[in-house]
Design a protein around this nucleic acid. Structure first.
Length: 490
RNA sequence: GGCCGGGUGGCGAAGUGGCCUAACGCAGAGGUCUGCAAAACCUUCAUUCGUGGGUUCAAAUCCCACCCCGGCCUCCA
């Protein structure tokens, strides 16, 4: 078994071989901290979170780095607008990022470097580039001379001549070549600034990822990822900077996920983005859907394919996730206690059940993280579990084994880790629905107790009246022989 | 204009030469179970894969042309 990943550099799937056996370094381009995150950000973070989980589940030791851009034009502008200090603004949105990601079940990266804390590293790299003749000072700024780096364009498949002819790049007299990009921006009055050999100023955007990637993962490492829109110019420039400075190859495999699109009422679709102002923030959606539902929605399509976002699809994802939790809840009723998600013993699974769920799941994941296929395996498992839970002749051990597997495989996708009750009893907070979902858990339980009493007395009229009332409040009941469980429906 | 993705059932989405008369989920239909429901389970739901050619014993999968959707080429995940 081997993991195959689609490498944007070369545009084909390749078997993934860590540079150092058993160890992986991965750098993911994080956010610019000036606003709340939307589904597009969620997709990046969830995709790479799943990749890291998978690498770890297959026995690799992973160092996961995800940076924060905490100084940049947009941040400065936004801080000015809001009349707050830049660090207050970035601190606030970094905290919001952490909260949103926690809700989505995204694990924290091992290292979360901030640009403003790595000025010396960036300056050192810029100086190296100047010394090597790859960068030059001009009018207080420092620029990278793209035509001094022959491999420029290798990642994005762009050729310098074409870029120049197509040029939407604004003319800047200080640049030798219009495509040269800034490494160091000279300070304007009233802007945050750091001292440097080239005068006071601040770093360009691209240099931070080069400097911090090298610092934490080395001059060569395995994986570097982000959204497709970063391929050019951001990642192209990162390569030029880093390989220009070190003189050798930097990242083995570049990974990029597809966009989240928004479809409007006329059926037109476009990329969800900050600049188009057509985004839905994660925290907005979290008022009506569990984070795990959003995760399910994202994982139901392949990470590289374009993905249309809609509320209906979120509902469908919720229904699918319900199915997995129904299976867990049914098993819980039989087993009394739900087995925890232990690590999957791949060797054992391969020998005992070569066609089994675990093997099929892993094969799907190893095919460039085919999460839709991996999810299909989870659904197959849920069916098996449902059958075992309903069949009274079943021995509990077989059921336990399958439940443990569902939770173990689910954990690699970051799913199925909650208690079934907390999934089903999640309460949306959306303002307009407050009346509908006004019943507290305790009130629901009390009404169910009344209904159970009525049913025991075979007073089905009263029982059905209560059930109907609950249904109108968005509560659905499910009777088993000895117990009534309930869930909230959107 | 250059480059990059995508077009598969009512919806979402896998599948990239034979196991595909197309996985899986949602929605729908019938049945079993149930006091009745719900859930579950069983059955059913694309002879067809944007269009037109071609290659092949064999194509959703390869080749050619065309049409449509989205993106990058400027900040963007």
């Amino acid at each position: 078994m081997a993991l195959w990943l689609y490498n944007s550099l070369g545009r084909k799937k390749e078997p993934f071989v860590p540079r150092q056996p058993g160890q992986v370094g991965i750098y993911v381009c994080g956010i610019t901290a000036y606003d709340y995150c939307h589904i597009g950000h969620a997709r990046v973070m969830v995709s790479f979170d799943v990749l890291v989980r998978h690498l770890r589940a297959t026995g690799l030791k992973v160092t996961h780095v995800c940076n924060f851009t905490d100084i940049d034009d947009k941040i400065i502008r936004r801080a000015l607008q809001e009349g707050v200090a830049i660090t207050d603004l970035t601190t606030r949105f970094i905290a919001a990022f952490h909260a949103d990601m926690a809700a989505l079940g995204v694990n924290r990266a091992d290292i979360e470097p901030k640009a403003t804390e790595h000025l010396p590293e960036m300056c050192a790299m810029i100086q190296t580039l100047i010394d090597k003749g790859l960068a030059y000072e001009s009018g207080g700024d420092v620029f990278y001379a793209v035509d001094r780096f022959p491999a420029y364009g290798q990642l994005s498949g762009k050729h310098l001549e074409e870029l120049e002819s197509g040029a939407r790049v604004e003319v800047d007299g200080r640049k030798r070549n219009p495509l040269d990009f800034v490494l160091w921006k000279g300070a304007k009055p009233d802007e945050p600034q750091w001292s440097s050999p080239w005068g006071a100023g601040r770093p360009g955007w691209h240099i931070e990822c080069s400097a911090m990637g090298v610092k934490y993962l080395g001059e060569s490492f395995d994986l570097h990822g982000g959204g497709r829109d970063l391929i050019f110019p951001h990642h192209e420039n990162e390569i030029a900077q880093t390989e220009g400075a070190t003189g050798h190859s930097w990242v083995t495999c570049w990974l990029h996920n597809g966009f989240v699109n928004v479809v409007d009422d006329e059926g037109r679709r476009e990329k969800m983005s900050k600049s188009l102002d057509n985004f839905r923030t994660i925290r907005d959606l979290l008022t009506a859907w569990r984070g795990e539902t959003i995760r399910m929605f994202l994982l139901n399509s392949h990470y590289r394919a374009p993905l249309d976002f809609s509320l209906d699809l979120l509902d469908a994802a919720r229904a699918g996730l319900d199915r997995l939790y129904v299976a867990l809840r049914g098993a819980q009723a039989v087993l009394k206690e739900l087995p925890a998600a232990g690590p999957v013993d791949w060797e054992h699974e391969r020998q005992e059940r070569p066609e089994g769920h675990a093997v099929r799941f892993r094969e799907a994941m190893e095919d460039d993280l085919n999460t839709p296929r991996a999810l299909a395996v989870l659904f197959d498992l849920a069916r098996v579990i449902n059958r075992l839970s309903t069949d009274e002749t079943t021995d509990p051990e077989g059921l336990r084994v399958h439940v443990r597997l569902l939770r173990g495989l689910g954990a690699i996708l970051g799913l199925c880790g909650s208690a079934p009750e907390s999934h089903f009893q999640f309460r949306p907070e959306e303002a307009g629905q407050s009346e509908q979902s006004g019943l507290s858990d305790g009130e629901v339980e009390a009404l169910i107790a009344q209904r159970s009493e009525a049913r025991r007395n075979r007073d089905f009229q009263s029982a059905d009246r209560i059930r109907k009332a609950l249904a109108e409040a968005g509560i659905v009941l499910e009777d088993t022989k000895e117990h009534t469980s309930w869930r909230r429906e959107a």
